[in-house]
Design a protein around this nucleic acid. Structure first.
Lengths: 249, 249
DNA sequence: CGGAGTATTGAGGCGCTTCAAAGGCGGTGG
DNA sequence: CCACCGCCTTTGAAGCGCCTCAATACTCCG
């Protein structure tokens, strides 16, 4: 197994441990799961819409997005997953989940057998509980996302996305909230934010001009995090991230 | 326990059984849960935003909504629950869920102890599995909702909501998809659809004029279900409703 | 019969979309 | 190594959908 894959699995297990107290056996069972590493090119579907797929997708490097597509070809990204996260654990509970999974950048993923995950979960109520809680937090993130889509203007939506992704990246060791690499095109950002690429561009320009974001290629810098968070009405509680050392501001 | 409360619990347990094969003991344990019946007036919060609440809320009569509120006072309803559904089972997994719960109409609810639910779940992997799946479906509904909010115009959003609610009502014995009582004000519909009350009104008028919806007070009739479903791009799969007898159109 | 919340309709404005075109940037092949 | 090509980014101009503000009618209930 590649280094990044092993590290991603550890990040995932560590995350689970903050959600439900796992025994040493539980951790061993999780780390012993059969894990097939795969590489996926940017914009390639990992799981098609409505397809059955017998593996859960753990992100090792790059970004993976969950999305739903409409008949007119438009799509809406409903979740963006950073390394260390399983993008579709919920599918282990409901095999016909409906949404598709796509690599948003070139990505390394770890395929974990759904059957094995179900067995491991059936063998330990603590693990099953952790899976449930993990999925529930995923849903809480989605519900916050829905509120932004429905109620907030483009600047606020963008600001919120940057706050959330920054924090999630930081939590999984991919950078700092104040400076991180987000390798998405403005078109992909639009797919997530419910905006056209053109308007994503204008929105970023506006955020740059008021000085809350600096963009250098695909590197985003947040010179004034509290101000960006204020614009976004960002309250990190819903992410349920337990900070490893600091308490954040 | 009132009749409606007992019947709601049975509907809920029956729903769980379609998600995970429960033993007779499991069913007995679920039906033996301590259940306190309460009545809530329209527009009264059952659980405030960010509040801890040690009970899960099973809807017995009326409608219950989950929502998030922004600083400017706007709110977005993220889920509408009909009788027979538990509105916040996810909170049993993650106590600090963030979203608030409100009676959207005068409602009868059944308060089920979160502690007891956790105990019952810890005692049976099948029940725990069913709870997880139940929550996962709730999340799938939410994700479809998010797509509508982000990508669809007012008519499509409204059409989709009517399709979904109609089907869910039918599934829990509250009417038929083609004719049901939806006791929401246009303002509440707006809170769910991400629209102003004024525009909800105009949208309903437009749907009436093209003949896909008839509104009589708060009774909604769908004379041409397939056409409404086509407008909404409604595909009921994500609801994972197993029809009791028929197969639907 | 009065009052409050709800529904309905009109007029005007703003934000995002659409359509269009030019400039940057990286990758690939000659 | 450079020239080219495709994708991405950036900017402009015009249009449409939903919002805001505003006023009137309806309906239920005391």
């Amino acid at each position: 197994m590649h280094l990044s894959a092993a590290s991603a699995l550890q990040t995932f297990v560590a995350r689970l441990q903050t959600l439900s107290p796992l025994s040493a056996d539980d951790v061993a069972a999780l780390e012993g799961l059969d894990a097939r590493v795969a590489h996926v090119r940017s914009n390639a579907d990992i799981v098609g819409a409505g397809a059955h797929f017998e593996h859960a997708v753990l992100v090792a490097t790059g970004l993976v997005g969950r999305y739903l597509q409409l008949a007119n070809g438009e799509r809406q990204i409903t979740a963006i997953h950073v390394p260390g996260e399983i993008a579709d654990l919920h599918r282990v509970a409901t095999p016909n989940a409906g949404s598709a999974l796509q690599a948003l950048t070139n990505a390394t993923i770890v395929l974990v057998s759904g059957k094995e995950l179900r067995e491991v979960a059936a063998g330990s109520a603590r693990i099953l509980q952790a899976f449930w809680t993990y999925s529930a937090i995923d849903a809480a993130v989605l519900s916050r996302w829905a509120v932004n889509l429905a109620r907030c203007g483009a600047k606020v939506r963008m600001a919120h996305l940057l706050c959330e992704i920054g924090l999630r990246m930081e939590a999984s060791g991919q950078g700092m909230r104040a400076e991180f690499l987000l390798e998405l095109t403005q078109g992909q950002l639009g797919d997530a934010l419910g905006l056209t690429p053109v308007h994503v561009n204008r929105t970023l320009k506006a955020l740059r001009q008021i000085g809350v974001v600096e963009v250098d290629g695909r590197i985003y810098r947040i010179p004034d995090w509290p101000r960006l968070a204020a614009i976004a009405e960002f309250d990190p509680d819903y992410l349920q991230i337990v900070p490893p050392a600091e308490v954040a501001a």
